[in-house]
Design a protein around this nucleic acid. Structure first.
Lengths: 331, 331
DNA sequence: TGCATTTGTGTAAGCGCTTACATCAGCTCA
DNA sequence: TGAGCTGATGTAAGCGCTTACACAAATGCA
């Protein structure tokens, strides 16, 4: 891994410029010369140093991604979609997890210095930092949050889907609801969902916090809620919290949906396999990642230079956990 | 992000060497000079170009990781442990997912060219490629597979734990077993587990393949198995497959562990929350990642230059899914 | 006070590439 | 047959840093 273009040039009896041209296919090279070069490359096992190339080209050919954590399928699915497209576009992906880290801002700035563009999950970086990155000219796509100036934002639709979900539940005849989700950060996905359902259900729904968006936290919060003042339906901020709620109900000997209906959000794989299968809102997670990678590519290559705010559509997926509802089709 | 050390030097009225020294703390710099430099850095919002630094230092300050996929907690947990320690050591992490990719070898070699060292999950890269990387002098840690020459390997203990698990199940009085796991690749973790249980149970256990190590595949394979010729106990290659088996049993109206016992491997969070809670073997996933990062650091810095093969200890975790067993302690 | 250190700073040579520009054959075509 | 091309190659100037080395100024000590 430490043979340089000079050695190849010497061995092939040409200049380094010719080697470079032969390898990249830029500029004309005589067939015979190319042969010689390729032979030398082969013999020496030469691979151009990424650092040299990048420094000369003035680009990293790498994208960054900042996430709080990797717990659960949401982050990993988005990440995989992102990595796949980035790879397709010839870019590597450099990751940074912020949960439990100190000096997050420094870490993120450092990351920004080693990539051509950055994907940031909504809650993984504080707003002032985002603003600073924008000011520094970092190419940025922020995911799962409301639009902000200077950066692309990308999210799935929340409000309308939340209203649809709420209306569906209301159609079951339920009258006392709870929204089980983490502390609401204004403008993030969960906040939008909460606003959406509340706009339909009004005072009939109360918000209940969980520590995090995990099965465990959903379990704890749901158990407390169900013991204390059982609502007829629990709308959860996401599928994992909902899975926790299902477990809590089971532990308390409650039937879902007989005693309490439960819904999730995201449509992760486990939602379909849960018992009862989870009514949820399907959000295109891979697609989010893929779009982010493409958006970043546009910003980096300069095809586009004004921020764009994209919202992907979602789909209400009705399954057993919200109760019998003959009009709807099950998946 | 495009202000260079030259501009800082000019503004501070010093040479670029002094700027570099002031910023890195290498070599002596007068307090007053440092002030001037820091002021200029501040005003210009200077961040040293990572490419320039890396090229000059001759190191990327980045590690790579190659995984097949990110499905389930195993990969993400290892990855997070790895990233955390790498970050602590001042190294970024560049990821590469190989599942469904064409030209994997090229992708991996490309990755090798942009990092100082590589963590590779056992099944993510073909053996010949590993050998080639070793030959090229790539610093390498391979995880979850048997030792191979030239590279560090790192895994959790399998054989003894598998025997312990098998003996535990035999102690319940079960006599007909199935091992539910993916097609066995010689030398990988699952293969070791299979060999371990078989060494105890002999002809009483049969191997049943799953397409992948996922809940879904576990579900499908288990359903087929349970319908066809129900064993008394199903030893699963990992927790996710086991969760699938639990779901299959439930769908078929079978009681676990009454009608069939089920065990997993890994002790992912869902194992504890499953109903019944899953008997499994706890493997220190974060620790694996963390160790890999440290091992790589040793190889990169040259503290150590001979390969090391490390095996971390595991722990049998007995829960309800294998049936009542008063002698053991439940967690 | 003079000499040997130490301290502070600058100069310049890399690190490994890409590419603009210069050069020079060998052709084409009038 | 020579002007004008085109094609093939080399030269050298970056890209943005780090650091060995040189050197001048400041300091220590006898």
């Amino acid at each position: 891994m430490d043979v340089t273009i000079y050695e190849v040039a010497k061995r092939a009896g040409v200049s380094i410029a010719t080697v470079s041209r032969a390898l990249r296919g830029t500029g004309p090279v005589a067939a015979k010369t190319r042969e010689k070069v390729l032979k030398a490359v082969e013999e020496l096992n030469f691979t151009p140093s990424r650092l040299g190339v990048s420094l000369a080209e003035g680009r990293h050919a790498a994208n960054g991604v900042v996430f709080p954590d990797l717990a659960g399928p949401y982050y990993t699915e988005v990440l995989l979609g992102y990595e796949e497209v980035a790879s397709e576009l010839g870019r590597s992906v450099v990751i940074l997890s912020t949960k439990g880290r100190t000096r997050v801002n420094d870490l993120i700035k450092d990351l920004a210095g080693r990539v051509d563009g950055l994907l940031v999950f909504g809650h993984a970086a504080p707003d002032p930092l985002i603003a600073e990155l924008v000011r520094l000219g970092v190419r940025l796509v922020v995911i799962s949050r409301d639009p902000l100036p200077g950066a692309d934002t990308l999210r799935s639709e929340n409000t309308a889907s939340a209203r649809a979900l709420a209306e569906h539940l209301a159609g079951h005849g339920y009258e006392r609801f709870a929204f089980l989700g983490a502390p609401l950060t204004s403008g993030d996905d969960v906040d939008e969902r909460w606003r959406g359902v509340r706009s339909v259900l009004g005072g009939a729904i109360e918000a209940v916090a969980t520590r995090e968006y995990t099965v465990e936290c959903g379990f704890d919060a749901a158990r407390a809620l169900l013991k204390d003042r059982r609502p007829e339906a629990i709308v959860c901020s996401d599928d994992e919290v909902a899975l926790g709620a299902l477990l809590a109900a089971e532990e308390l000997g409650l039937d879902v949906p007989g005693d309490v209906a439960v819904t999730g959000w995201d449509d992760i794989m486990a939602a379909r396999h849960a018992r009862p299968a989870l009514t949820t809102v399907r959000q295109p997670m891979r697609e989010l990642g893929a779009r982010a990678a493409r958006a970043l590519d546009e910003l980096i290559t300069g095809v586009r230079d004004t921020p764009r705010h994209l919202i992907l559509t979602t789909e209400l997926v009705v399954r057993a956990s919200c109760g019998p509802h003959p009009q709807e089709v099950r998946t």
